[in-house]
């Protein structure tokens, strides 16, 4: 119990910094790929701090409530995950968090944020099956939904769930808002629909979204790591490789239409889920 709480608190305190570091390295690598120098590694942190220095301006007060709830639930999701709770609850908490984000964008009632919200909703719908199937896969592999048990499983789970792993990496692109799936909002200069989902969020409100994103990044990389939990260092290597791949994809593809995103993500989930779980059932 105590270790779990320590892990949860550790996550809550450290994740933004780790997330910022990852984000900074991401931007640095991206810049290098484009032959630029790129911003300082701590740039994401500066961005967040700056946002909290800005004026508190909103379209409607309610928006802040939704965004704050989003932040809280993302943190909660990650804390649940790193304290080794039930992975299904983790996924549902994440869905709840995103529902709040989407509601925030809806509540802003502007054309751009409205379309951003719809697109985010599509992204949510595209990703959700894969996450649930991955959880199901973990259960079939280890007999438990508890992240703790899964992490302590003696064999690398990726060997039993190779396809689900690929699927997770695929939807990771959507969740990390990387091109070609950065439909709802994007970190890049090449925006579409202004800033989509976040168009109406200014100053501290946007800051909360950014912080939540930092937490989310760490959480998702933790999820990737979970596939290799029995070999922590290999897992770390895998996380680095996966993230590098994401950056590569981010920089070499152009944004696709939502139809392509939804279809491909569902197809991947269906194929990966059906084959991987089917084989496990028959074995």
């Amino acid at each position: 119990m105590i270790t779990e709480i320590i892990f949860a608190i550790g996550f809550i305190i450290l994740a933004p910094f780790i997330g910022a570091l990852i984000g900074g390295i991401d931007r640095k690598v991206t810049a290098r790929m484009q032959g630029r120098v790129g911003p300082p590694v701590l740039q994401p942190l500066y961005d967040v701090f700056k946002l909290f220095e800005k004026e508190k301006a909103v379209v409607r007060n309610e928006v802040n409530f939704y965004i704050f709830s989003y932040l809280i639930f993302v943190v909660f999701t990650g804390a649940l995950f790193f304290s080794g709770s039930d992975i299904l609850l983790v996924i549902f908490a994440l869905t709840l968090a995103h529902a709040f984000l989407i509601l925030g964008a809806y509540a802003a009632t502007s054309p751009y944020s409205h379309i951003g919200a719809e697109r985010e909703l599509l992204q949510l719908m595209a990703v959700e099956p894969m996450l649930i199937l991955a959880a199901a896969g973990f259960y079939m592999a280890t007999g438990s939904f508890s992240v703790r048990d899964i992490a302590l499983w003696p064999e690398p789970i990726v060997m039993t769930l190779p396809l689900l792993f690929v699927g997770i990496v695929y939807v990771l692109t959507i969740k990390l808002r990387k091109s070609p799936f950065d439909l709802a909002t994007t970190h890049h200069a090449h925006q579409e629909l202004v800033k989509g989902l976040t168009t109406e969020f200014a100053g501290p409100t946007l800051g909360m979204v950014e912080i939540a994103h930092l937490y989310e990044t760490v959480f998702f990389l933790g999820l990737v790591w979970l596939f290799f939990a029995s070999m922590p260092w290999v897992g770390l290597l895998a996380v680095i490789i996966v993230y590098f791949l994401e950056i590569l994809v981010d920089n070499t593809t152009t944004r696709v239409r939502w139809q392509v995103m939804l279809r491909s993500a569902w197809l991947v989930a269906l194929v990966a889920g059906a084959i991987n779980l089917g084989v496990l059932t028959l074995m």
Binding site: A57, V58, V59, R60, N64, A108, P111
Partner: peptide, 11 residues
């Protein structure tokens, strides 16, 4: 969140 917020129009 109701306190001292500046209300901006929609973009």
């Amino acid at each position: 969140f109701r306190k001292d917020r500046k209300i901006l129009p929609h973009y």
